[in-house]
Design a protein around this nucleic acid. Structure first.
Lengths: 202, 202
DNA sequence: CAAATTTATTAACTTAAGTCAATCTTTTTC
DNA sequence: GAAAAAGATTGACTTAAGTTAATAAATTTG
């Protein structure tokens, strides 16, 4: 984990501005404040943005790499989701309630991340009234995806789930190890192997 | 569906105040405003608080009864969750983004519900600054539960899931039809029958 | 680059979930 | 309260997931 210099952060911030906040009215001054609060951090493969039982104090925006969101059920890992650029996320319930996180966030490749600390978000709210919307929007981006996967995974067969994943996100399947994909699908790596074999025959 | 008279609502509101908002500083004036914005609604069994493809314009607080949150995957229903009193909920992504809801909210028994419309929430924010926290808290209550079930269901066997449900929420299992429980567990009613049989033998 | 570690595949076996269909039970409705 | 509808159980059959274990392939690390 390594904090990046501020001039890089500036370029990145512009990217955010143009891609994610097109519809929000913000003044130049708002953006100056926003920009000054960003911390850009790089993570190595397998490093943790957040460990289980830590308290979440950041909102993240992934710019490069892949991040895995997972938990433990007994001794087994369960992968909720994979995050790709450009996406906002964090461990929301831990962030909001200041309780130990039940989930971990781990980089699966070298990753570049914008981090907005709780403190900087509070500063943003105080100093840049117009940017309040930006803050809310970030939280929303981090939350809106929660109503989807559950239903998918639990209404069709593991094979159908895998085929759907292949279809909707081929680069995920190519770049992420099978055990993580199996953990995402709620099956064993052995089952995933068999599914792949079955598919290749048909 | 039937809107209840205001005097009943007053008593109910007191219940909310004492049970849910103990830690939030609100003035008497704030509470007067809050109270005036509440609509109390009763639903018959099987009636919908929200249908799929409707736009969500409310936040609900369930006072009596059971509500099921579900969706369709192809032709099959999938039940995300059951709500019991006293609980806040809505179709959050639809409410926030004003897009057609992918989930339905259905009363499984006669139900009594407080409804806070989008409009009344906006009024609350404008008129009662201290009550802003109340509004946020309601949303939080509605959201915090989203990081849990997924992992449970997908890391152990259907039988273990059922046993856990029996253990953690016996009244749910007693009061709700098997096909809904099966749909919650991601299995068929036939499988649930067999699981029950197996358990009763051991 | 070689050794060590991690990841992926395959096989043999057991177990249980899905499906289809029949029957029994409970609940709803007029 | 009788008829109809909805829900629950059981059986027979097929299919695939879990488990354990062995091996092969790929990646990491010194």
């Amino acid at each position: 984990m390594k904090i990046i210099n501020q001039s890089d952060a500036e370029a990145i911030c512009t990217k955010i501005q143009t891609t994610l906040f097109q519809n929000i009215q913000t003044t130049e001054k708002d953006w100056d404040i926003f920009r000054s609060l960003i911390k850009t951090v790089s993570y190595n493969k397998n490093e943790f943005l957040l460990q289980i039982n830590e308290i979440e104090n950041n909102i993240y925006c992934l710019l490069e790499g892949v991040v895995r969101k997972y938990t433990f059920k007994g001794t087994k890992e369960y992968t909720f989701d994979f995050h790709f650029p450009v996406k906002f996320f964090n461990s929301y319930s831990s962030y909001r309630q200041k309780t130990p996180s039940t989930i971990a966030l781990q980089a699966l490749s070298p990753a570049l991340v914008l981090q907005f600390s709780r403190k900087s978000m509070e500063q943003l709210y105080e100093q840049a009234p117009n940017a309040k919307k930006t803050g809310r929007k970030m939280i929303e981006f981090a939350l809106i995806n929660t109503e989807n996967k559950d239903a998918k995974i639990n209404t069709q067969s593991p094979e159908d789930n895998y085929l759907e994943l292949l279809n909707q996100n081929p680069k995920l399947v190519q770049n992420i190890s099978g055990r993580h994909i199996a953990s995402y699908l709620g099956i064993t790596p052995e089952s995933l192997s068999r599914i792949r074999k079955r598919i290749s025959k048909s």
